[in-house]
Design a protein around this nucleic acid. Structure first.
Lengths: 254, 254
DNA sequence: AAATTAATGTCGCAC
DNA sequence: GTGCGACGTTAATTT
């Protein structure tokens, strides 16, 4: 370590460092070495991108950030948007070479067959670093939280509601909560963590229909959609299908 | 520009360059300046992440790559996966400061209110670059391509099929292709670019139901799902609802 | 490997 | 802004 004199330390030569404005071959060597070692790589520069696989795409020249992860993920990010403009999923294999004095990064996977190719006409920088991340994300406010909330206090659905099973399977899929009302009628509960539209009504309707066929019951099955809110169209469709709605948040309001 | 003697050029001092192993305050200055100038920023280091908004999450210490885009996007990437472990959508505002000798990047947005906070206990590097990307992605093999293919050759659905409208609106949403068969019966066509499951059947069923109510027709409306393939469950549901399936790819096989 | 659904889904478009 | 559906959706879980 080297004391830089301003209170922190600079890593020694064994630690990969960013390469600024590298030649194509220097960039190739740095990227190849890092991919080999299972490090994370970023390359920024002016490039074109070709993709062929489940669909196919082309992207003309522009400045983009390419990220290669040790798990085989590749990401191409432009200056805009949450989503990468192109990518390759985890499990892909990355290759890098120089042709006609241009750096080219290729990523390939099978099942389905997909190929990504990024060709750089200039390279602003390359970074390579070792990554260690043992932590798992802890997330609150999911549909799972909503389910636990209902199971802990079934009366939130309605007085007398009694849950009998979660993830009960039907020919049309698994019912979030299956139970009975105070009169002993079967109740299908479909949970959504956020405001619902027509698609959620269709989903609930399918489950109710499948359960009626499964139980050979004759319309003694109620369907209840549980979500923070519903659109007008969703409420109309619920009414048309004889289904019900209960407003409930995944976590109690503070 | 400076000729480095190996055939390429090094950017001058007016071009932002990566900062390696910076002190928290040096990192803060570099990031603040770049955010101010509308540049793209990457920060790599050991950090914790807190998020609160539509949901809420916490993430313990680990090595991650943080990307700040000029459009207000923030991304936090771990060593694994296509998805960022945490993020903030475009339109958010980023702030950076140093507290207790730790770099902290905060991102905030309204509508809905959401907040992201990344606190670094060490920083491997910071990069800042100007980004210019005038190009739009050109994508082939979408549902739009499938629609054009059917409209160019309606007999791919069946002999005598005649498209009358695309995006025909119904109370339940827009029908991809609305038309008539050889016998003059109304036909609702729902297109999918890939293999379909039960959800697509539910969607088609909703449209058919809405059109029947809309036209006051009495089951003279056919529903046809067009996709490369369908799951067994989807085929069963189609049969139960009296709907049909046509196998078709978005682009012709080569 | 295939099937099914959740997601802080995101994104684009119509209203 | 809300509503609605596509997406190379991805990711997780189960069969």
């Amino acid at each position: 370590m080297t004391d830089t004199g301003d209170g922190h330390e600079t890593a020694g030569g064994d630690v990969p460092e960013p390469v600024i404005d590298p030649s194509p071959s220097a960039a190739r060597d740095a990227v190849a070495r890092a991919v080999d070692l299972g490090e994370m790589v970023t390359v920024f520069g002016r490039c074109t991108v070709e993709y062929d696989g489940r669909a196919a795409s082309t992207l003309g020249p522009g400045d983009r950030l390419v990220v290669l992860k040790p798990d085989g993920t590749a990401l191409v990010h432009t200056d805009e948007g949450h989503q990468p403009v192109n990518w390759q999923p985890p499990g892909s294999t990355h290759e890098v070479d120089v042709t006609d004095d241009e750096l080219r990064i290729e990523s390939h996977r099978t099942g389905p067959e997909e190929h990504l190719e990024v060709t750089f006409e200039s390279i602003t920088y390359v970074t390579t670093v070792d990554v260690s991340d043992p932590e798992k994300l802890s997330l609150l406010g999911t549909e799972e939280d909503l389910r636990e909330r209902v199971l802990a206090e079934p009366a939130l659905i309605e007085p007398g509601f009694e849950p009998l099973a979660t993830e009960r399977s039907t020919p049309a899929g698994a019912i979030d909560i299956y139970g009975e009302d105070a009169d002993g009628r079967a109740v299908v509960v479909e949970l959504k963590r956020r405001r619902v539209g027509p698609d959620a009504v269709g989903q609930l309707d399918r489950y109710v229909g499948a359960l009626i066929r499964d139980l050979h019951a004759d319309r003694e099955v109620r369907g209840v959609l549980v979500a923070p809110s519903a659109t007008d169209r969703a409420r109309e469709l619920l009414a048309e299908e004889g289904l019900e709605f209960v407003a409930l948040d995944p976590t109690p309001e503070e």
